[in-house]
């Protein structure tokens, strides 16, 4: 049995919490938020992320402020999902997210993420993941207003995901995730894999399974919170570059591969026939498609 989490009632991860604040988030607000936690003596570690508006210089013009707008209900729902997922994944005592709407001047705070846990590791990891998800998943837009009142729309820098050939140390993590995602775990060798890593952490993988007269793209997985960022797509295209043989694959999500130029085929190599059966038993008889390129 896992330890029962001691979550204070007001912070239970269920109801939608107020996230948006009009204008900048003040140092007093942040100080108060910290002070409020002194009564929660089961907390051993807080991790705080503060996003501050930069006075970027672009073509001799300096950013004076950012004006934030959002798709309100969807944004709140997305913040809620991020929260719920973090509570599910990490042993957190409580979590607060605040984001500005409207104008925030350069040097002022526009994002405040406050994560508390018993021990530091959960707080550190969760906080970073929450911030990345806020940037990629929440419908908020920043308009950078220059000192001369002209403007441009802010763009967020992408996740710095690195793609590389797998090393032996990755294999345990790949095995664990492949089992979790119910992927093909037959003959796993790190040499066949390409991995996607974010700050050294493995967040995606995929491999070429070598058969006599063709290669098979197999065991493609991306950690849930990083999906829909094109990571799976990148892994597949890198795998495609690593072979000159004909490629086959078995999948329950043909659309994903069709977008990458694969097409359905009825010519099924015998090596894939057993795989279709395994797929059926693992994936609750979802329909399996064979694609080629």
């Amino acid at each position: 049995m896992s330890e029962i989490k001691n979550i204070p009632t007001e912070n239970k991860p269920s109801k939608i919490k107020k996230v948006f604040i009009e204008g900048a988030i003040t140092p007093e607000f942040i100080a108060n938020a910290i002070a409020k936690h002194s009564a929660k003596t089961n907390i051993g570690a807080h991790d705080i992320f503060l996003g501050q508006v930069r006075a970027d210089k672009i073509n001799d013009k300096t950013v004076a402020a950012i004006e934030y707008t959002s798709y309100h209900e969807t944004a709140e729902q997305e913040f809620h999902n991020i929260r719920e997922e973090a509570f599910r994944k990490y042993d957190l005592t409580c979590m607060h997210i605040y984001h500005s709407l409207g104008k925030v001047k350069a040097g002022e705070i526009c994002l405040f993420v406050f994560v508390s846990s018993k021990h530091r590791n959960d707080a550190f990891t969760a906080c970073r993941e929450i911030v990345e998800k806020i940037k990629s998943n929440v419908p908020i837009w920043g308009k950078e207003i220059f000192e001369d009142h002209s403007h441009q729309w802010k763009t967020n820098t992408d996740l710095k995901v690195s793609y590389q050939n797998s090393i032996l140390d990755d294999l345990d993590k790949i095995k664990e995730l492949a089992n979790k995602f119910k992927l093909d775990t037959e003959d796993l060798s790190h040499k066949d894999f390409i991995t996607a890593k974010l700050n050294g952490e493995l967040i995606g993988f995929g491999r070429l399974k070598h058969h006599t007269d063709f290669d098979e793209i197999s065991t493609i997985g991306v950690v849930g919170s990083y999906r829909k960022n094109g990571i799976g797509k990148k892994i597949v295209s890198q795998l495609m570059n690593q072979t000159s043989k004909k490629i086959y694959l078995a999948t329950v999500i043909p659309l994903f591969f069709q977008k990458l130029g694969f097409f359905n085929t009825n010519e099924i190599p015998f090596q894939l026939e057993t795989k279709i059966e395994q797929c059926h038993s693992k994936c609750h008889s979802e329909k399996v498609f064979i694609l080629t390129k």
Partner: peptide, 10 residues
């Protein structure tokens, strides 16, 4: 329906 340009919160 909403048309959502690339997000740039934070």
């Amino acid at each position: 329906i909403a048309l959502l340009p690339p997000f740039s919160g934070g």
